[in-house]
Design a protein around this nucleic acid. Structure first.
Lengths: 303, 303
DNA sequence: TCAATTTTATACAGATAGTACAATTTGAAA
DNA sequence: TTTCAAATTGTACTATCTGTATAAAATTGA
């Protein structure tokens, strides 16, 4: 993305943090970032569009860092989950994400609303997937309900704790406490068999395209990280690490990942005996299904 | 309040429900309710002021009906609490209160924001007081945390359940489920001794004037209702019922309750042997402390 | 009836979002 | 360095909205 455009987003973000979104006029943004109106509307079709760009950037860095905390760790370790949530809450606070979110969540702009909804659903879906790792597959029927309640409890706890202890208070005990309580909730629901939402329903809450996209990104990241751990722990193998890094970058950050390149690289990777072949297979099928989805999407877009 | 003003509020409410608050312009309200701009600004100093008037009216009827559900019932009965919450959630939904709330909660208007904050705190306080009745005084240390989480869980559960089952879905199972889960939470917190917020802190979250006002209204309503039950169950005693009704109305709905009248009536009530003297004493001291607060407030307002 | 109050119609001021477009600047290729 | 297309600017304009002002008309009540 354009450097200048990026700069405008940053300046606007600063104004939003200081004054709020509604209270910041486009004129303010123009003056503060030193561009003209024409340029602004050349970059963004509206103030809302700018906000979406800002959210996208913040989401991306947040999701990346969140995933990095899990690399090489035990996915069923509650303490790791606490750290992941703590990190996200701190990022939220630093960027006033919650305030911004609330400020525009009820908006007349359908595009913005949908974007935010998808963001929420992605978060919910991530918590749900983590809960399955934390509580085990056998608790699955109760884990969508639990994820929903966890987010509700968390936000309320953080909100009131901040009122009571000042906005700069350490958030860790709040997250720890909330996770302890959700354990009670999961146990209680499982014991009584109470169920409100079927986990399968969640799929219908997300637009088709989203449905598998995040899962893909998460598992890709996870699998490749584990493979790299695999290599480093045994002996240094810079070539394979480079190959893995290439695949990851091409798939996550390129607009049009080059299929032939990735497939060729995957072949080389398969040759590497040092790697856990089960993980390699996961990676392979994950990439395959990705290209299937891309092909379908192309089919649909023929006008 | 003026009939016409009331009519404007109703018409505006209808527009807010249909289009949302932001999307409704003052011009829309003028046309829809058939008044001129001059009249509107004669009634309300702004659109926000109108919204506050609307919220006040809705809150009042909601709190009244919510209290009525408890009359003559066992305050420790979970099922009654479920009914009270169910009623409030249905009222919320019918009037799109949550949407309206979210739409303006982050606003640049401090007066509106404070008003909404106080409303939230009153609800939290009410839940907390009910939780003490439901779970017992010995659980008090854990009940502020539990109230906070209960509201978070409840709103999230209602939200996602409505997404999954349509906005017209029966809300009862959601409330029942959430109450079951909060029981798990209270038990879990009590067992482990985890505590996040001290219940005493809640007082500092409310403006001074609010602090005792709602408690007063709730206990007044409760005590008088019980006294009336008391009379009816034994034999018909219209005079005492009239006296009790007068006290209640004078205290809750008059701008300046007449102290001499109420004290005189309370004297007559004390003579009535049919009444539970313990309840009469509760009523008496409650009224006494009310007039003390009024006196203090007068003292403060001397300019 | 008559005076006070409420209501109306209408014009106006000040912000704001977004459009249109000609003039200017920039930057990269020739 | 020159040239030319693209990016950027400045400015004027439209439309919408909130809120003010005020004179004229209608309503109310004594």
């Amino acid at each position: 993305m354009n450097d200048r455009k990026q700069h405008v987003i940053q300046m606007a973000h600063q104004l939003f943090i200081e004054r709020g979104f509604q209270a910041t006029s486009i004129q303010d943004i123009l003056e503060y970032s030193g561009i003209s109106k024409g340029t602004f509307y050349n970059y963004f079709s509206s103030k809302n569009e700018l906000l979406i760009a800002l959210f996208k950037a913040l989401y991306e860095t947040m999701e990346t860092s969140r995933n990095e905390l899990l690399i090489g760790q035990d996915p069923s370790d509650l303490e790791i989950f606490v750290k992941q949530i703590e990190f996200q809450m701190n990022t939220n606070k630093k960027n006033k994400l919650i305030t911004l979110f609330e400020e525009v969540f009820v908006s007349t702009d359908e595009e913005l609303k949908d974007f935010l909804k998808v963001g929420q659903m992605r978060m919910l879906r991530w918590v749900f997937n983590r809960f399955i790792e934390l509580f085990g597959e056998e608790k699955r029927p109760y884990l969508l309900d639990s994820s929903i309640m966890f987010l509700g409890m968390l936000h309320h706890n953080v909100k009131y704790y901040s009122i009571a202890n000042g906005a700069s208070a350490d958030i860790y005990p709040v997250v720890r406490y909330t996770v302890n309580r959700i354990v009670n909730v999961v146990d209680g629901a499982a014991e009584s068999g109470d169920q409100l939402n079927m986990p399968e329903q969640m799929n219908s809450w997300l637009p088709d395209a989203m449905r598998s996209e995040q899962d893909f990104q998460d598992t890709l990241y996870q699998t490749i990280s584990e493979l790299k751990e695999n290599l480093v722990s045994k002996e240094n193998h810079p070539k394979s690490v480079q190959l893995l890094d290439f695949v990851q970058d091409e798939l996550l950050h390129s607009k049009k990942p080059r299929k032939f390149l990735i497939e060729s690289v995957l072949l080389s990777i398969k040759e590497e005996e040092k790697l856990d072949q089960k993980l390699v297979n996961t990676l392979n099928s994950s990439v395959e299904s990705y290209f299937e989805r891309v092909a379908e999407a192309c089919e649909d877009n023929k006008d």
